[in-house]
Design a binder for these strands. Structure first.
Ligand SMILES: NC(=O)c1ccc[n+]([C@@H]2O[C@H](COP(=O)([O-])OP(=O)(O)OC[C@H]3O[C@@H](n4cnc5c(N)ncnc54)[C@H](O)[C@@H]3O)[C@@H](O)[C@H]2O)c1
Ligand SMILES: NC(=O)c1ccc[n+]([C@@H]2O[C@H](COP(=O)([O-])OP(=O)(O)OC[C@H]3O[C@@H](n4cnc5c(N)ncnc54)[C@H](O)[C@@H]3O)[C@@H](O)[C@H]2O)c1
Lengths: 223, 223
DNA sequence: GCATTTTTGTTAATTATTTCACAATGTTAA
DNA sequence: TTAACATTGTGAAATAATTAACAAAAATGC
């Protein structure tokens, strides 16, 4: 019967489970969409239908941040969206850099997380002389030598889109320049200091996992 | 004391936990690399160091498939790699299609999961007349009308790289043509029949989750 | 050939996550 | 106002995943 009350929502996260934290961005984006289409209230079960997550899980997730809904009513979409915006630090611009302006890196630069997403790739790095000095969708491409001397303590994270064999080296340079966070698209498992944090986006793994589950689901259905 | 013995390894997956299954592709790729550099044996703890997963977890994961190692010795990399290859259906070519030849789709076509990865994007689809009829890295781009009439029952999965607003529509067409698996790069949560399966690769979610964990780890360290 | 070391496979314990069940409480409509 | 209804927030139960502990067995070194 705690009914946590909090001042700064951002402080409320002592013991938010990892699984909960990983769902928050999906909740946030879904709420953005609901607010945009003029929906002012939603119940956990309707919301659950949309994000395809059990309504109890959703209520429990929200409950780690206190009482965000109203009994018999549901959740105020605008209010909930703004709460999550703070929790996710989306009320301030996050500056990130990108290392490796190849096929994938170029796609990310062109996308640049624009819509409703307070993140900006402010600078890109590569080793290829043909790419250094160019500009892609407003972001300029610089030499890796520059990364070595840049002060990136204000940069939230580095997106790594270099070939697997160069990922560790690139990460080491980024670390040295003051970066602590990585979104790693290469298959390399990075070895990093304690205070750094990586998330992997591994499309090959995802595709193989998909193939695995498809085949095994098929076999189960047979028997 | 069961010491499961099996004929066809592919059959051995009645109750492999989801978490285990999702690690198998990483194990497989790591073993490919080890074999390539001439390493013939490895212990679960050395392997765990490389993939950054606890050695007990690794042994438990393998144990669902029977006794793959030798006490006091470890695992034969070649043998284990080949076993996983079968489990993951990587001993046969998986044909996939790609829908949406934009920035991201083009990057994926250029990559085309070549190296040590038995998957091929055999055909691409788009609505843009400027793209239809072109060829990217050996894969030809066709009209969406063609998807409607194609028989894709031999196609394992569709990679969805269309704008969010068109993802459901594209998926419906793919389903109608006989496809059951999706690797969805758009933020849309697809509504699909029971016998279909999707995996999401959601870079925006990953980036926001990264920012969340970075900030909260920082706060913890302060206190 | 024997003692020592290594390392697996597995059972049990722990921890994390999801789901159930429902009292509490606010909402809605008459 | 009041009764019927909707829906939250949360303990408790169930399920899933990880980690610890260790006997069994094979490998290695002498
Ligand atoms: N493209 C895809 O669809 C795809 C899919 C799955 C995984 N990946 C992974 O993403 C990464 C990038 O893939 P890609 O297709 O864009 O590769 P790419 O070869 O097109 O691009 C790599 C870029 O990195 C640059 N580079 C090389 N060494 C560098 C260094 N030391 N420092 C900085 N830059 C360096 C190259 O000049 C090039 O511009 C790879 O690790 C790949 O395995 C890509
Ligand atoms: N590019 C990125 O880095 C990035 C990052 C995160 C998420 N995404 C997501 O990936 C998806 C693709 O992104 P993108 O940057 O490649 O977009 P894009 O606009 O460059 O490409 C989209 C392509 O889809 C085609 N298309 C549009 N409607 C279609 C339909 N009904 N059927 C078939 N094709 C259709 C377009 O002609 C275009 O070629 C989007 O959903 C986006 O949100 C992309």
């Amino acid at each position: 019967m705690s009914m946590v009350k909090m001042g700064d929502p951002v402080m409320a996260n002592q013991n938010v489970p990892q699984a909960t934290a990983e769902r928050l961005p999906l909740y946030y984006r879904t709420l953005q969409r609901l607010v945009a289409i003029g929906k002012t209230r939603i119940s956990s079960s309707e919301f659950g239908g949309i994000v395809q997550i059990d309504s109890t899980t959703i209520r429990k997730d929200f409950s780690y941040f206190g009482a965000l809904g109203r009994k018999g009513y549901g959740y105020d979409t605008q209010h909930l969206m703004e709460f999550l915006k703070k929790i996710l630090y989306q009320d301030e611009l996050s500056k990130v850099i990108l290392i490796g302006v190849g096929h994938l890196g170029t796609a990310l630069l062109n996308h640049n997380f624009q819509k409703n997403n307070n993140t900006k790739i402010v600078k890109a790095y590569d080793v290829d002389p043909l790419k250094i000095g160019t500009e892609i969708s407003g972001t300029s491409v610089h030499s890796m030598d520059e990364l070595e001397t840049d002060d990136n303590r204000e940069i939230t994270a580095a997106i790594l889109t270099v070939p697997a064999a160069h990922a560790q080296k690139a990460a080491d340079l980024a670390i040295a320049s003051g970066i602590h966070g990585f979104l790693n698209f290469s298959p390399t498992r990075l070895v990093l200091p304690q205070d750094a944090y990586v998330r992997h986006v591994d499309m090959t793994v995802e595709l193989q996992a998909l193939i695995y589950f498809l085949n095994h689901a098929m076999e189960e259905r047979k028997s």
